[in-house]
C-alpha cells in the first residue's frame, strides 16, 4: 500500500476537526443550558439553598465528600444525604463533630450557627432533588 501523508493535510484536519467538534459541543451546551430547568423541575433552588451552597464551598466540604459523585472519596456521598439521613440528623451530626474516636476518620467542627445549619440543609435538600438520571444505584451513595 502506498499513500501520501502530508503535514499540511494533517494540520488542516487538526484545525478543521477541532473547530468542527468544538462548535458541536457549543451547540450541545446551549441545548443543555436550556434543558436543565425542565430536566430538574423538582429541584427548588431557594435563597436558603443558595446561601447553603456558599457554606458548602467555603468549608471545603468537597475536600472529603462527594456531591453527585464529584469531590473527594474520603467521606460519604452527600447528594442524597437529605433523603438518607434527614435534616435533623445532619444538623445534629455537624454539631457533634469531631467524634475524636482514636484511629477513626475525623470531621472538623465548623461552628455553624442554627441559621447556617438550616441553609446548609436547604442546599443538601436541593441537591437531593436534582434529576441525576437515577444515580446513585442505591441510597448508600
Amino acid at each position: 500500500m502506498s499513500a501520501s501523508f502530508t503535514k499540511s493535510t494533517a494540520r488542516n484536519i487538526f484545525y478543521g476537526g477541532s473547530v468542527f467538534f468544538f462548535l458541536i459541543f457549543l451547540g450541545l451546551t446551549v441545548d443543555t443550558t436550556l434543558a436543565v430547568p425542565s430536566h430538574n423541575a423538582k429541584a427548588q433552588l431557594t435563597d436558603a439553598a443558595v446561601r447553603g451552597k456558599k457554606i458548602w464551598e467555603t468549608r471545603n466540604c468537597a475536600g472529603c465528600h462527594t456531591l453527585l459523585g464529584e469531590g473527594a472519596f474520603f467521606a460519604p456521598e452527600l447528594g442524597n444525604v437529605y433523603v438518607r439521613r434527614g435534616p435533623e440528623f445532619i444538623k445534629g451530626w455537624m454539631k457533634a463533630m469531631p467524634t475524636n474516636v482514636p484511629g477513626r476518620r475525623q470531621m472538623p467542627q465548623f461552628n455553624l450557627n442554627d441559621a447556617q445549619l438550616d441553609d446548609l440543609v436547604a442546599f443538601l435538600k436541593y441537591s437531593s432533588q436534582i434529576n441525576t438520571n437515577n444515580w446513585p444505584p442505591n441510597i448508600e451513595g
Binding site: 471545603n60 475536600g63 472529603c64 473527594a72 474520603f74 469531631p98 484511629g103 476518620r105 475525623q106 472538623p108
Partner: peptide, 13 residues
C-alpha cells in the same frame, strides 16, 4: 489512620 495530624491538618486541607 483517620485521626493522623487531626485537627492540625485535616484531610480536606
Amino acid at each position: 489512620k483517620g485521626d493522623f495530624l487531626f485537627p492540625a491538618i485535616p484531610f480536606g486541607t
